[in-house]
Nucleic acid binder design. Structure first.
Length: 293
DNA sequence: CACTTGACCTGTCCGC
DNA sequence: TGCGGACAGGTCAAGT
């Protein structure tokens, strides 16, 4: 589900909502998604204060005063939703969180983190692809994924030149597969791959080696544009995604091709089609986006 | 090494 | 309304 803008939106919400909360209890019924030894939870999680909420690629890190962190990947359908019943007392029915108080936990709740003030953070995941780990903060950079993951697309240090060089390692791949490769750059998923390729007028099936450096530089800027715009809109809710307060994102209303099959291309009016590229559902304007041989 | 495909899960939607 | 199959925003492992 969530790509960089969605995970960043969750991070910003959690940063506002859970820093300085003290963990009172933790509950999970899902060893595969949260495989830590019970005594780690007892010693390093219960009683700990949340000190920071960080993101790298699509991974969230909730840092604790014990120098341990909860590391979370939401994968396709994961959600981290914070509920404070005191909002209900204070604001009554009609408060945005009001319905959540009655809805959570539910049957896809995998982990519940209760805080000493009576509020709670729920990790929900319908498809169970997501995971949560409790580990020493200092060891996070050593996990395999962190070792291999590419640069943050919105960081100041990431330049078009570096993008062209890194994606060049996948010269014989179709460009959509290369964009989805997290070792090339971090955070792109199916939505923003389609959106940025349309922006740069590149057909997703074009081999990387057949895309000019000029086009790749344009693609780099399109990636930054769609990701930044989506963060501003609170991410995309295609099906399940919600932010830390259980609210949907609105980027999908601004999408140019994603989930717009059958509708006119906003640039040329040609009907957008949905096809399959790199094993993923793929949205294109066949007039704007031509395969270069 | 580079690249593609299938597996991991549950739920929903679409055609018969 | 029921049932089978395809599909869903991500990543790995295993295959070529």
């Amino acid at each position: 589900m969530p790509e960089l803008p969605e995970v960043e939106t969750v991070r910003r919400g959690l940063e506002r909502l859970i820093i300085n909360k003290i963990v009172k209890a933790e509950q999970h019924d899902w060893p595969k998604g949260f495989p830590n030894a019970e005594n780690d939870v007892a010693v390093f999680l219960k009683g700990a204060t949340i000190t920071d909420v960080r993101r790298r690629a699509k991974v969230l890190m909730i840092d604790l005063s014990t120098d341990y962190s909860l590391v979370v990947h939401l994968k396709m359908t994961g959600q981290l939703v914070y509920v404070n019943p005191k909002d209900h007392e204070r604001f009554g029915a009609g408060h945005p969180n009001d319905s959540l108080i009655n809805q959570l936990p539910d049957k896809s709740t995998r982990v519940t983190l209760s805080f000493t003030d009576g509020s709670a953070l729920y990790f929900n995941d319908q498809r169970k692809f997501g995971w949560m780990r409790l580990m020493p903060t200092i060891e996070i950079p050593n996990i395999d994924f962190m070792q291999k993951v590419g640069p943050e697309p919105l960081s100041d240090e990431f330049t078009p030149q570096e993008f062209i060089q890194r994606i060049g390692r996948r010269k014989n791949s179709v460009i959509k597969a290369a964009l989805l490769d997290q070792t090339v750059l971090a955070g792109i998923g199916n939505i923003y791959a389609d959106e940025s390729l349309w922006g740069a007028k590149i057909h997703p099936s074009t081999l990387v080696k057949n895309v000019s450096d000029t086009k790749l530089a344009t693609l780099f800027h399109e990636i930054q544009y769609v990701l930044a715009l989506s963060i501003e809109k609170g991410g995309s809710t295609d099906r399940n995604y919600v932010n830390a307060e259980g609210k949907r994102g609105s980027y999908i209303d601004f999408a140019r091709v994603f989930r717009r099959e059958g509708q006119p291309c906003p640039r040329c009016g040609t009907i957008i089609i949905k096809t399959r590229v790199a094993g993923r559902g793929t949205h294109i304007c066949e007039k704007c986006q031509k395969v270069v041989e």
